[in-house]
């Protein structure tokens, strides 16, 4: 398989890229920091990638970088089967409430920019007759929640966009995979207290890769969150207010 990853220098993206490398898939990395990209490319090469790994510039906060970045990926890999987006930023609710600029950045990066990036990727994949677009949303987007009002709203929008894409283009060959992680121990969450079911990126990576192989439209990682969120989505509003989830 030929895979392009945006956000594989860190966290879950790093773990997913390693899985692809181990099984010998062709990989192209997109990101905003040359040095980090270089080191991640070397890492993947030393963890089993069969070919040399190339990378290109793409900053989620600079939409003009999307087309050139993806064009370079297409050219280098000679066509692409899957585009994976794990790039995103988090902000604690208390923090976002007092720092407007940061709130704007989180909302923009996690919704508008991610969607615009997906639009470019979608067009390219469809031009080639189809492919897989895998994007990391969050369980935080499944229900409005007091602890993640802003971040959750951006992710809710993202999840809705991905579902819409799925309905509109699956028949044309575009498979969207919306990954909804629960709490995963990455640098992004390092200063939060880990709730039950917290797990490591290595644990969720195989599940994500399997979902990409199969084109599963929505995948919760770890799987238990599917049932937790099923229950949460069914809670009446007064109960939701009570449990302070």
């Amino acid at each position: 398989m030929k895979v392009v990853l945006l956000g594989a220098t860190k966290g879950m993206g790093r773990a997913v890229a390693r899985k692809f490398a181990e099984r010998g898939d062709s990989i192209f990395l997109l990101g905003r920091d040359q040095d980090e990209l270089e080191r991640s490319a070397l890492d993947l090469e030393n963890r089993g990638a069969r070919q040399r790994i190339e990378y290109g510039f793409c900053d989620l906060l600079q939409p003009r970088s999307f087309e050139p970045g993806l064009a370079q990926a297409w050219e280098t890999l000679d066509g692409v089967d899957a585009v994976v987006v794990t790039a995103g930023i988090f902000g604690a609710q208390e923090d976002l409430e007092v720092r407007d600029a940061h709130a704007a950045r989180v909302l923009t990066a996690d919704f508008t920019s991610t969607v615009l990036f997906c639009e470019v990727a979608r067009k390219r994949l469809l031009e080639d007759g189809g492919g897989t677009l895998c994007v990391f949303s969050s369980v935080a987007g499944d229900r409005g929640r007091s602890k993640v009002v802003l971040y959750g709203a951006a992710k809710a929008g993202l999840s809705a966009y991905l579902e819409g894409l799925d309905h509109r283009y699956r028949r044309a060959g575009l498979r969207t995979v919306c990954v909804k992680p629960g709490f995963v121990r990455t640098a992004m969450t390092a200063d939060l207290d880990a709730p039950p079911f917290a797990c490591d990126p290595e644990t969720i990576a195989p599940r994500v890769v399997r979902a990409i192989d199969r084109g599963t439209p929505v995948v919760y990682v770890p799987g238990i969150w599917r049932w937790v969120l099923l229950a949460i989505r069914m809670l009446p509003r007064f109960a939701m207010r009570r449990i302070d989830f």
Binding site: L61, Q62, P63, R64, S65, A104, T108, A109, S113, L116
Partner: peptide, 21 residues
């Protein structure tokens, strides 16, 4: 890189321009 960073003239295609860090 130089072309991409400031992005201030690309108003219509760059909704992030006033919020981008």
């Amino acid at each position: 890189e130089v072309e991409l960073v400031p992005d201030s003239h690309a108003a219509s295609t760059a909704p992030t321009e006033n919020t981008a860090a």
